[in-house]
Design a protein around this nucleic acid. Structure first.
Lengths: 113, 113
DNA sequence: ATTATAGTTAACTATATGGTTAAATATTAC
DNA sequence: GTAATATTTAACCATATAGTTAACTATAAT
C-alpha cells in the first residue's frame, strides 16, 4: 500500500489525486465520521474504503481514533498545512503576474492620458 | 500516459505527487526553460523527462511553446489556480480551529480574571 | 546533402494501484 | 458462549506508472 519510501508531499498529493479520497476529505470537513459512514455514499466495498482511509492517514490528511469496534476519522492539520505551504511559492508567481498586469495597465493609462 | 478520463483535479494532484515533476514546476517558477535545460539536473533519460513534461502539460500546470526544434516550457495559471481553489475549503477548517482556540483562550482568560 | 541537435514516440519491464471476495480480528449484544 | 457488527488483512486481478533503450521526426549547421 502506498510506497513506504515516498516523501511526505508525494504521499499528500498522491492521496489527493483520487476523487474518492478527495470526497472523503471534504466529507470530514463537516465533522468526525466512522469508516462505515464514510463508505456509505460510495458504490464500493468496505475494504476498498478501508484502503483509501489508510492512504489518507499515511499522508497525515486525516487521523484515526479507535473507540470500541469503531474507527473515527477526522481531518488532520499536518497534511493540509503541507499542501498550503508548498503551494505558497505560487503566490510569488501570481503576484508577479499581477504586478506585471498592473505595470502594464498603469503604463497604458499614462499613454492614454 | 496518464488516464485520459481522469478529472482535472486528479491530473493536477497526480502530476504533483512526483518529486521530479514538483522540481520541474519549481524550476519553472524562475522562468521559461527548454526540455533539455529542465532535464539537466536529473539523473534520468530525456524520454523520462519528456513524459513528465507531458504529464504536467496535461494537468495544465505548465504550457509548451515550440520554437524551431526546441520546446519552451513555462508555468500555466490554470492548474495552479485549481489547486488553490480546491484547498480553499480548508481555510474554513483552519479558521474554525482558530476560532475554537480563541474561544477557548477567551473563556480561560475570563475564568482567570 | 550530411551530420548534429532537440525532442518525441514505441516497445518493453518491473512495480504500484484500485478494486474484488474471502477470511481474520475485535468488540458488543443477547 | 454464540451471534452480530465494525473494520482490517490477505490473496488475487487488471490496469497504470516510471523508467529503460532504440528508432523516429524535425530543425539547424557545415
Amino acid at each position: 500500500m502506498v510506497k513506504y519510501y515516498k516523501d511526505p508531499l508525494d504521499r499528500i498529493f498522491f492521496a489527493l489525486a483520487d476523487k474518492t479520497r478527495r470526497s472523503i476529505v471534504q466529507e470530514l470537513n463537516s465533522g468526525i465520521k466512522t469508516a462505515k459512514e464514510l463508505a456509505e455514499p460510495f458504490m464500493m466495498s468496505l475494504p476498498a474504503i478501508s484502503k483509501h482511509l489508510k492512504v489518507l492517514e499515511m499522508a497525515k490528511l486525516i487521523k484515526r481514533e479507535k473507540r470500541g469496534r469503531q474507527h473515527f476519522f477526522s481531518l488532520q492539520a499536518e497534511g493540509l498545512e503541507a499542501v498550503s505551504n508548498w503551494s505558497e511559492f505560487f503566490d510569488t508567481f501570481w503576484n508577479q503576474n499581477l504586478d506585471n498586469l498592473e505595470t502594464y495597465i498603469n503604463k497604458k493609462e499614462n499613454i492614454d492620458e
